[in-house]
Computed example of a mutant assay.
Amino acid sequence: MQRADRDRPAEALIAEAAVADVDGWGFDWLEGRATEERPGWGYAGLLAEAVAGAEVALDLDTGGGEVLGGCPRLARDQHVTEGWPPNVRRARELLGPRGVTVHDTAPGAPLPLADAAADLVTSRHPVAPDFPQIARVLAPGGQYLAQHVGPSSAFALIEAVHGPTTAAQRRGRHPADEAAAAEAAGLEILELREARLRMEFFDIGAVTWILRKCPWWVPGFSVETHRAQLLEVDRIIRRDGAFVAHSTRHLMRARKR
């Protein structure tokens, strides 16, 4: 995106982003409009190595299958779950030709595998990891490999649009809490790494789009109800050149006892 485009009126940028496609789990629309650092551990490479050596694997909350679809080789019997219908369709289009079973699942539903059926469960940014269910479908010695969204991710932007958050909200998704939940479910933590990553948004269209893409950031968000907040963020971007926030991520690798 050229600087001249970023100088377009806020209303035009917001209107454009309000109708842009947000299906799937790709972020190409933000190219040139926003950046986010990536953790040093390289989850895509770790995932590719893990699924290539697995017999039965389950990828949770796969989105449109974009991350798993980038792996050169998948498990012999590869399964994925996804709960949002547009993403389910995309995942079937992308992964179905590779023999992947795509399960359309509801939030909180049991995982769609039998007890001890999998030797690997993976996820990039699971919505709400259900560790008892993960432990149930893993065979003894089977592994869980995931990159989780950590606490207070993008909260500078969330608070600019939504308003102040509570201490409990800022504590949510804490790696220590999730590790304790995993261990209580019967998993042994093998690796837990954390990263804090810089995010920059260069125009208000990028902000509008990401808030539509991630509706849990600001529940009830729309360009109509939050127009005043969007225009204030636009003012900050034009003054400072970017709106800066930070995300947190943690890598978790665990084994079924």
Rank of each mutant, 00 (worst) to 15 (best):
R6E: 08
D7I: 08
A12I: 10
A12M: 13
V22N: 02
G32N: 04
R33C: 02
T35W: 02
E37Q: 13
R38Q: 15
G42S: 13
L46K: 06
E49V: 06
V51G: 08
A52S: 12
V56D: 10
A57T: 02
G69L: 06
A75E: 11
D77Y: 14
T81H: 00
E82G: 00
P85E: 12
R89D: 12
L95F: 07
P97G: 12
V102L: 11
D104S: 14
T105P: 01
A109S: 03
P110C: 07
A116L: 15
D119K: 14
A128N: 13
F131V: 06
I134A: 04
Q143Y: 12
G150H: 14
G150S: 10
G150D: 08
P151I: 02
T165E: 09
A168S: 10
D177I: 06
A184V: 03
E188T: 14
A195R: 07
M199Y: 08
F202G: 09
D203F: 01
I204R: 00
G205W: 03
W209A: 00
I210R: 01
R212A: 01
V218T: 05
G220F: 02
V223P: 07
V223R: 09
L231V: 07
E232M: 06
R239E: 15
V244F: 07
R249I: 06
R253E: 05
R257F: 15
